[in-house]
Lab assay of single mutants.
Amino acid sequence: SSQSQGISSSSTSTMPNSSQSSHSSSGTLSSLETVSTQELYSIPEDQEPEDQEPEEPTPAPWARLWALQDGFANLECVNDNYWFGRDKSCEYCFDEPLLKRTDKYRTYSKKHFRIFREVGPKNSYIAYIEDHSGNGTFVNTELVGKGKRRPLNNNSEIALSLSRNKVFVFFDLTVDDQSVYPKALRDEYIMSKTLGSGACGEVKLAFERKTCKKVAIKIISKRKFAIGSAREADPALNVETEIEILKKLNHPCIIKIKNFFDAEDYYIVLELMEGGELFDKVVGNKRLKEATCKLYFYQMLLAVQYLHENGIIHRDLKPENVLLSSQEEDCLIKITDFGHSKILGETSLMRTLCGTPTYLAPEVLVSVGTAGYNRAVDCWSLGVILFICLSGYPPFSEHRTQVSLKDQITSGKYNFIPEVWAEVSEKALDLVKKLLVVDPKARFTTEEALRHPWLQDEDMKRKFQDLLSEENESTALPQVLAQPSTSRKRPREGEAEGAETTKRPAVCAAVL
């Protein structure tokens, strides 16, 4: 046999249950609850290399294929790409003598399909299967379609040439079993990697079954959420508030809700932002270029202005709740996480202390139980975000031990490091100062900020419009641009040419 590394010779191994799959997660993409704000000051410096380099560890398999027929071997997927077919160049070659004697062998292509993985959001991997055969590759009886790919989820059954000719079961060793999710959700989405997690739940990458488009699904544990919100009269209202707010909003710089499922837990389906959180971008770069800050901040102002015009105060604006559309420097941003939002009543007064301390406005800290506050709290938070983006460190921090965090904020005395700000323009610093004003009545509004000289930049605004146009074009394009080929190089076993392929839609398939 010419099988590559990772293939075992026996096809009769006992199949494990899916609970053996491991679970991976990374930083929070968007969480309903406010958790302790991640610290920006503690960015690790590059460490000196050791005298002796450690040995390379043996790579762990990321997936496993269990053979369902004699003549096929099990495969431990270690590499990122595997070709399957009769050709000797394939990493998994159909060359077992037992297999060659079967009637089905002649229906398999020289290069029938490939399984591979690509880097997705949060640097996690996504597994795909890609059909290159004349007679078809099927996943859970659905045709992939020649020249098309679809994501592979845990426990997928792979069939060759005929939908009933099941050859492998695919085990993704990095994700959960699909069966743990409600059927209504599974009918519409293929669940994938964990993108982030918080005290009350997690955010998962998923794929729409009909279109193969990526989405983010925010899962909120009702049990954990009820415990964490025990002081509230009705904890469920917080989730329902977020859903109702998101459904009503329609702005290019605000995250869109696509679906909602109320089962044992809450499942909020949101558009996916491939670039992750602004927080991670700031930490990764230490600070952002001023031109990049301007492009992002302009969009934040437009989003918050839209919220305020619609009578909504976000109340928890922070870099973790600003998501980026891509890994590119120039990209769209979207505001997310409306769990603490407040729809303005007639009095415009709110007395609930919520939000993240580092970003809270002075009037929030001094008015607990005594007075109210209004939309100006969001403008203060925007000032803190702009400060961080321009400088790479927070204006107020618990680690300045000589003054408490509350006193720093209520006095408006931010930590100004001259040598850092020497590289920032006077106009940018002036806008920061106009937003970090203790008196909410004297603080800049979103309208005033948008009129500030720093943002009178036609090149930046043109760039934003171009990015918007690109997004609109990409969302308007159909996901499947061509029909699967019906040509046949070899006959199917026991049926006429093209008899099955043309009847089945290529579900969740995307043209390369």
Rank of each mutant, 00 (worst) to 15 (best):
T358G: 05
A376M: 06
E500R: 11
L349Y: 08
I268V: 13
L332G: 14
C379F: 06
P418I: 13
R451S: 05
H399N: 10
N250W: 04
K286P: 10
E242A: 06
G311H: 07
S325D: 03
R375N: 12
K281N: 12
D337S: 00
Q465A: 04
T358S: 14
R462N: 15
P505K: 04
L349R: 08
D407R: 01
A442T: 08
L382A: 04
F396S: 03
Q479H: 08
F297C: 13
T446A: 12
R351W: 09
F279P: 02
G355A: 02
P357S: 15
I268F: 12
D439L: 00
I255R: 03
I343S: 08
L295T: 04
E419V: 08
K463M: 04
E264M: 13
K489L: 06
M300I: 15
F416V: 12
D265F: 04
M350I: 12
S469V: 14
S367I: 14
S341L: 03
N259R: 07
L344M: 13
V480I: 13
W421Y: 06
L307I: 14
T356S: 03
K247R: 09
L317R: 02
Y359M: 04
T486P: 00
L429V: 09
W380V: 10
V424R: 15
S487V: 08
A376F: 08
S348T: 11
V432I: 06
L382G: 02
E426P: 07
L278T: 02
E447C: 11
I343Y: 15
T356E: 00
H340F: 04
E495L: 10
H452I: 00
R375Q: 04
H251Y: 08
A509L: 14
V507I: 12
L353R: 07
G276S: 13
L344K: 11
A376Q: 07
Q483P: 12
T292V: 09
F260T: 12
L302M: 11
Q327W: 00
I312Q: 00
K294L: 03
Y296L: 11
R351L: 07
V511S: 12
V269C: 07
L512N: 14
Y296F: 14
C253G: 09
L270F: 15
P453T: 04
E493K: 10
K463F: 05
I343D: 12
E271K: 12
T336Q: 00
D337L: 00
I333A: 05
R287H: 14
R488S: 14
E320D: 04
P491Q: 13
V480A: 08
N250V: 12
E500T: 12
G494N: 06
C508F: 08
G355S: 01
T358E: 05
Y267Q: 07
F260M: 05
I385W: 02
Q305S: 03
V304A: 13
P505F: 15
K247Y: 12
G311C: 11
T347H: 09
I243V: 07
L295A: 10
M300C: 12
E363Y: 01
P440G: 12
A496F: 12
N285M: 12
K248L: 07
G339Q: 00
V282C: 08
M273Y: 03
G345E: 03
K289Q: 12
A482V: 06
F387L: 01
D466E: 05
Y267L: 10
G275Q: 00
L332W: 05
E458D: 10
A422T: 05
E274W: 11
N259E: 09
R351A: 06
V322S: 03
L307T: 01
D457M: 04
M273D: 00
G339D: 11
P505L: 12
L301Q: 06
Y266L: 14
I417P: 03
L382T: 04
L324R: 03
A499P: 09
P440S: 00
R462E: 01
R504C: 10
K256D: 07
S367R: 11
A303I: 04
R375K: 08
S325I: 13
A263R: 05
T475D: 12
T356N: 00
S348C: 15
R287T: 14
V438M: 06
V269L: 15
G284A: 13
R451K: 07
K434G: 13
E244Y: 13
D265R: 04
R375G: 10
I268C: 13
V304M: 10
